[in-house]
Computed example of a mutant assay.
Amino acid sequence: MTDALHVPRNERGVIRVFALSMTDDEARQVKDDPELIAAALGAPVNTDQIEVFPVSDLEGIGLVGYLLEGNAVPMDQLAPDRGKLDKLGGWVMIVFSLAFEDRETVLDPASSLTLIGTYGEGRTDWRATETVDADSAQPYSAPTETVRKKPSDAAMSGRIAMIALLILGLLTWAMIWIGG
């Protein structure tokens, strides 16, 4: 049995890769049975956020490519384990943070699971790269009184035309009603 793994509450963007030491038939059973997945991990999990598949399904891209391109794991995180990941055969289990549904969890993986690595998904850096010094960028720099803009000539013409059509329509209706 492997050491227990702690998953902190509200964890985001972490991917755990496990190798499965079992026959193809056993791995297929685990893949198709949420209870077997939870038992293998030793904790309740949302199996919609767990992938179980043979590494051979990744022919052409490989496990490193799948993690890099398919799951946005930065290469600098994969580099130390690249040899292990490239040589890995058989079945793997990929466990995403959302499998724990924001709960603090302690995983007690079965002896048939071997943790290969824990990786963080690449994240966008939303910090500004430049300082904006314009007066209009400063807090509370918006004008305090609102200035009402005068309607354009086209808007005024449209309003006049609508009023004229309304009056003509009312006169026509009145003539038909009175004359009718």
Rank of each mutant, 00 (worst) to 15 (best):
R103L: 07
F53A: 08
L68V: 07
G90I: 03
K87I: 11
G83V: 12
E104W: 06
P74G: 07
F96C: 06
G62A: 07
E104A: 09
Q77C: 00
L88R: 11
V106C: 02
G89T: 14
L68Y: 14
V55N: 01
I94N: 01
G83D: 14
M93K: 04
E104K: 07
V92D: 03
V52H: 05
L107G: 03
F96M: 09
M93P: 00
V106Q: 09
D86Y: 10
M93E: 01
A99D: 02
T47G: 01
L78P: 02
F53M: 12
V52T: 08
G60N: 02
G90Q: 02
L78C: 03
V52Q: 04
K87Y: 15
D48W: 13
D102E: 12
F96T: 07
R82F: 07
F53T: 08
E51H: 12
D81P: 06
V64I: 08
F100D: 01
Q49M: 13
D86A: 05
M93Q: 04
E59T: 10
P80S: 06
G70N: 03
F53R: 13
L88C: 10
F100S: 00
G89P: 06
Q49P: 05
I61D: 09
L98R: 14
T47A: 02
V55A: 01
L58G: 02
L63T: 02
N71H: 15
L98G: 15
G83F: 12
G62T: 09
L68A: 13
L88N: 07
D48I: 13
E104D: 11
V73G: 02
D86S: 07
L63W: 05
E104F: 05
I94E: 04
L78Y: 04
I50F: 01
E104P: 01
V95K: 01
D86T: 14
N71L: 13
L98P: 13
I94F: 05
N71C: 09
R103W: 10
M75C: 10
V92K: 05
P80H: 08
S56M: 08
S97K: 03
L67E: 04
A99H: 03
L68F: 15
L88E: 10
G60Q: 05
W91P: 02
G70R: 06
A79I: 10
E59R: 12
D57Y: 15
E101R: 15
D76S: 11
P54S: 02
E51A: 15
A79V: 09
L58K: 01
Q77F: 00
V106Y: 10
L88A: 08
E104Y: 05
F96D: 06
F96E: 10
